[in-house]
Design a protein around this nucleic acid. Structure first.
Lengths: 128, 128
DNA sequence: ACTCCATATATGTACTTTGCATATAGTACC
DNA sequence: GGTACTATATGCAAAGTACATATATGGAGT
């Protein structure tokens, strides 16, 4: 008889726990950064801006953007409000909260560490 | 009626296509590197050696190791053979192929680029 | 008015990957 | 026989992702 395991639940409970899996795309910190630097303010705009970041893959799916923004809001890292579009449908505008900025700072430490480790690893590989 | 989509198949067909998802853990290049430098030669040994690499998370699950090794073998990047264990059950010993070394070189380029981008991104974050 | 297109958000769902548990088995020691 | 360590392998559910689809606003062209 297989025991019913209680699988670890992250995302909503401990927002920083899922860092290993999010690290692959770094969507979360990039969105926070774009918001914090006033480069993007709503979902559709993020799609275009995020593409300029070499840190992420060339294309980030819209679904990932919208769902990540919702997750960030649930964790209190951003707040949204509706605003009329310049031409077209309404936009959901996002703002970073102080907690969101702190979260980005924590991300920065992890990204820096892993980034350095990766550069170092690449160097080791080239010495073969 | 929902259309049956033909989802992109990677892994076996184009071994380098799954780089985005594998990038999170970098298990594949680390295993190849450990093999190439004679630091590990079979699954169980990889588990202990890989833990010393800061590039990956502290712990890599055994299942990931074994499945990654199998995938590498299917793609012709490693070859395996059975050998008696020093004390205990037999081990499946792995060797890197020339194709595997090339694959590692390609990985190194990507890891270096992304690593630099991450360090740069962290720097941008710290300037906020 | 109607079609077409860009903008904009949201969600359904199948697929992939991952993490934990379990299965199996050889050797060693008591 | 029982326990512990070594060693490989796999089942399965959770988590994450990719693609498709649904809905809707507003502008340009006909």
């Amino acid at each position: 008889m297989r025991k019913r395991r209680a699988r670890k639940q992250f995302a909503a409970s401990d927002p920083f726990a899922g860092i290993a899996s999010n690290l692959s795309r770094l969507v979360e910190p990039v969105l926070l950064y774009l918001l914090a630097t006033d480069r993007a303010h709503y979902g559709y705009e993020f799609m275009e801006e995020a593409a300029h970041f070499a840190i992420t893959d060339a294309h980030i799916d819209a679904a990932v953007i919208y769902r990540t923004l919702r997750a960030l809001e649930q964790n209190g890292f951003v707040i949204s409000s509706w605003a009329p579009g310049a031409s077209g449908p309404a936009r959901r505008l996002y703002e970073v909260t102080p907690a969101g900025l702190e979260h980005l700072k924590r991300w920065a430490v992890v990204v820096d560490q892993r980034g350095r480790a990766m550069v170092y690893f690449a160097q080791l590989c080239n010495q073969l």
